[in-house]
Amino acid sequence: MLHTVNKSPFAGSALDNCLAFLAGGDEIVLLEDGVVAATLDIIDRCEAPIYAIEADVKARGLSARLRSTVKLIGYDEFVNLCTMHNSIRSWS
């Protein structure tokens, strides 16, 4: 399953819920305000691959603050991820 998170971890429980219900093979895409999480150590212990939409990261000035486990992607790669997974869960 592909999980997407589009809310800041400081502004609700979207990320908490996402991290709590991960299964093997799942992947996470952070987008819009969700990219704030890409700069915080709370995601360090997450075992699933974590991606963040580059345009959203740059718009917020967060490029230099990313945790090492986060991979930046463009919209085309996001579409690829969506097609690779059978289901998508949007946390917001």
Partner: peptide
């Protein structure tokens, strides 16, 4: 307060979004 602090974070570049970089 809270995420409002990100309004004035240095280095914002909204060029790829349909959003004005008003920081």
């Amino acid at each position: 307060l809270e995420d409002g602090i990100y309004q004035v974070l240095k280095g914002q570049d909204a060029g790829q979004l349909e959003s004005r970089d008003y920081s």
